[in-house]
Design a protein around this nucleic acid. Sequence first.
DNA 1: GTGCGTTCATCAGGTTCA
DNA 2: TGAACCTGATGAACGCAC
Lengths: 588, 588
Amino acid sequence: MPHSACNYFSSASVMDFYDMFSANMEEGNNRQSDYNLLFLQSQNMDLADSTTPGSVKSDADDAPPLSPSVQMNGGGKIRSRLSKVSGDANKICLVCGDKALGCNFDAVSCESCKAFFRRNALKDKKTKCLFEGGCKIDINTRRFCPHCRLEKCFTVGMKKELILGDTDKKKRMQKVILNREKRTVPASPAAPVYKDKRAQEEAASSSSPTPSDGEGAGPGGGGIEALLSSPIAQSLLSSNPILSDAANALLRQVSDAPSLAQTITSALAGQPLLQISAAGGLLSAPPTPITTTSTTSVEETSSSSSSFAAPSCSSVVEGTNLLTNAKMVACHDGTSEPMPSVSSFQPSLTQMDSFLLRKLSEDEDRMLNDLMQVYDLSFTVDLEPLIHIKQLDPSLNQLVNQSSITVLRLIKLSKRLEDFVTLPQECQIGILKGCWIHILLLRSVSLYDSTRDVWVTPRGDIPTEILKNATGFVQLHDDHVNYCSSLKEVIGEDLMVVVLLLVIVIFSPEGQHVVARQLVSNIQDKYLILLKHYLESKYTYSKAAEMFPQLMSKMKELKELAGEHGKHLLDVNPREIEPIMLEILDLK
Amino acid sequence: MPHSACNYFSSASVMDFYDMFSANMEEGNNRQSDYNLLFLQSQNMDLADSTTPGSVKSDADDAPPLSPSVQMNGGGKIRSRLSKVSGDANKICLVCGDKALGCNFDAVSCESCKAFFRRNALKDKKTKCLFEGGCKIDINTRRFCPHCRLEKCFTVGMKKELILGDTDKKKRMQKVILNREKRTVPASPAAPVYKDKRAQEEAASSSSPTPSDGEGAGPGGGGIEALLSSPIAQSLLSSNPILSDAANALLRQVSDAPSLAQTITSALAGQPLLQISAAGGLLSAPPTPITTTSTTSVEETSSSSSSFAAPSCSSVVEGTNLLTNAKMVACHDGTSEPMPSVSSFQPSLTQMDSFLLRKLSEDEDRMLNDLMQVYDLSFTVDLEPLIHIKQLDPSLNQLVNQSSITVLRLIKLSKRLEDFVTLPQECQIGILKGCWIHILLLRSVSLYDSTRDVWVTPRGDIPTEILKNATGFVQLHDDHVNYCSSLKEVIGEDLMVVVLLLVIVIFSPEGQHVVARQLVSNIQDKYLILLKHYLESKYTYSKAAEMFPQLMSKMKELKELAGEHGKHLLDVNPREIEPIMLEILDLK
DNA sequence: GTGCGTTCATCAGGTTCA
DNA sequence: TGAACCTGATGAACGCAC
Ligand SMILES: [Zn+2]
Ligand SMILES: [Zn+2]
Ligand SMILES: [Zn+2]
Ligand SMILES: [Zn+2]
């Protein structure tokens, strides 16, 4: 029986303790009683059950066992009762009589004796009392004779077994460091260690706008449910139950080793979503752990920890607009190749750069990586087009149907965004209904090749003219192309920016159908700031201060453009439209 | 399933108890009575710890098993209070024997074991028993060996699958938030409820940019110090030590009872800043507490608590651009009258509105109020102009000197911003050097009257032409006026927006002289989001989605415009320039 | 009412720095 | 050396959805 072992052990330890105890008794009996008295007075309710003065000695053989547990960190109830009764600072160090805060190493003791014991109890040096031994130890004299002080520490029951070993200590420190890293955004290389938490809070976020919970829940939206129960939407919106469950399970188990995106990846590996061709190439790519968990020393992690040059990307972001900065190599640029391997979005910083470039926090870096992966998984994987457009001038209906591909991708992407799936479902649907055109347009921007005036899709180039020819909406088409061109100019080939804009658009609170607006808006805030930080980290603060407003402005334009497109979509003939599109268009 | 198990269990628990008992009998003869002790002995313990030491002893002889205590940290007092053996629900924690309330994770367990299991079951860490494994777990020893405790948790049937995953957790929280809002907004907000501090953070900013204490201290900036030690700047920058110290102290002490602005107000009351005419009117205004700290009953606070119509302001914000909303009364609009009385920036929300309008959090409301007060105190109070401009075509130098008024105001304002004063001083100076032109321009926008093409200052109107005539920089002037006009169009008369932009500009990380860029940027983030939220709360989400980008865009223009102005300022004749301006211009 | 999660005060380890 | 921190862990009390 396990129990027996344990019990045996404990009793052994008790004996051990007893031995120490009795030995001590012999040695310091007179003082002892004093302490016992004090002890009794102040804590009798607390501790009496273990160390009654009189009995301690005589009955030591059976009493001691209880004593250790006596001091075990106290039950709240008893304590509170006690403190009420006898005041508060009734704890007195058994060693020196100083005020004690609680138990340390299994004996009520003060801070100094605690530290003293930790520092000295494990030393095997043979210390000697410089006097005759048995020095009296009190708050004033405790410093005089370490030997006797240590002796008394043992006497009153401090146990050196409770001092953590080097191994545990190391482990502990590592954890601490890790956690601190998590909180402590990049920032200063010279890790201030300890006590930057408060500094931070006070510095920048003390009274920061805590996103308030807001918003009424809006109407119960009975009709909306239809979207859910319809066959296609159903299969879409809840197609992968394992996605959230299994992924989460995995995620939980592996704690924070692999990233969310990776977890999802593996969870999805055997479960092609919908008609998606399995895309083995992408998914079979070895999942590279993002964070190096074993960051033993904090030294020099600041600049080299998680950042390395992107593997195969080397195109330089529009040099014309950049301040000269050798490090500004684009990471995820343009190449619509899947890039499953994880890379840091933070170019490695030299001291010089750090003056101009933000250092992304680990969290931010991870978020960006995850986003990019999610995007790759959703928008890079080839979807079998539901309808092949062969002719050069498809009808509007056909175009609409064609865009269902992107809608499916959008849904896939959304379902992979944790911020999205945790929203109430009615809210999810509202969001999708509201943003899909925006996404379509945004997507077209990222595919746009201004030199040839075509959209470069996985299935070949599409001349932009096709829209004009097909629909006859000349103005609309021109606006669209102009938008592509102008936004592309700002974004360059930085796909990461596109993805961020995409997410920001998704979490637009102003959509007509959105229900939990405040919730959505708060999420959007997060990504807005992430975008800002990303820009600052990649293009310098100065450039970011230009780009961010430009991008914001473009988002506004996007809304207008999408609005225009939306108007025309009301003209489609419902009978020729894919069900999924009908649903997202709110048509019947 | 769980239920059946549970139900079964409660009856089974008795069996279990017997089993343990018998097992103990076999194994431990004397020691074994542990459970017995636990259950039956409670009275003993109770008596013991309060009164008779003797009883302790007598019972103690079998107690030893209770204390494997030795190394387990913690330890608690022996839990004397026993779940009434017969009286209380006969539910007993299968893990530790403590009183159980019901099933947790599919096994009858106590609160502590429930929490313990939730916290530890999902960790994949390989824990080790510090003993030989199979420690006995009871109410007293449960703390000692987490490993065996967890093991026992699983043994008695707790299932880690029942622990909600991160996603579910989030979902749950969001639902909670939504539901709370549902109640809070329309009807009576049932007592405050839950604190969603973390929930909020996680919902919208969890892994988001945690503001860091970023950036090393930077260069010692010897020359810059001059600004501080110079007579004027000195008196300016550190004129009111009590402002930062006393105010902050107060602020900390009173927590969040009075607002920062108020604290400052009172702190300043007896300390007229500089040559400022005491401005008794403003300062003597009764400081109305902003937040009603003693919100004992939250009933109906939602719509009436901190929000009431602004006393004397009634101008409606440009109705043309607004969605129809009867509530949208501007609070701090235009009238450059000081408005010390506190008002909420949140128009009272009806159920309908809450669908379109954000509900500002208390914090946000307070921040806005504080900002506005700070602005009023700094920019509304009349400063004695250092130089009176009488003539209609002042020289450039005179204009520069004239702008020292605004610079002084800027400095006053900055010193009242907690986010500012907590920055390193060199950083403060760098910021001021970098943004003062922006502020000047921004200020001019808020004073601009497009109908008459003049700036309305406390000292009378100034035709915009004056600049053109004086300097001859026609292009610059036109740009300036155009900027005023166009930005004004967006802002309308909403002074709050101006103030927010002002603060956002102040905390621009890209300024040439700024040192702690990351820190500053993080602060800017806060105000950016605050601006967004303010817009959402006052102009609907939809309108905010337009305005925010527009304002961002204007900020970019502002930078360019300021840059142009800056160029020309290099031409001034240093000998005719005020010292303060020389310093801020970095001239000698 | 049950069962899940969250919050908060407390405890007892370690670490820092004057 | 010791005061003053930071920390993870614990458990009681509580809110909330179902
Ligand atoms: Zn002591
Ligand atoms: Zn001695
Ligand atoms: Zn238990
Ligand atoms: Zn064990």
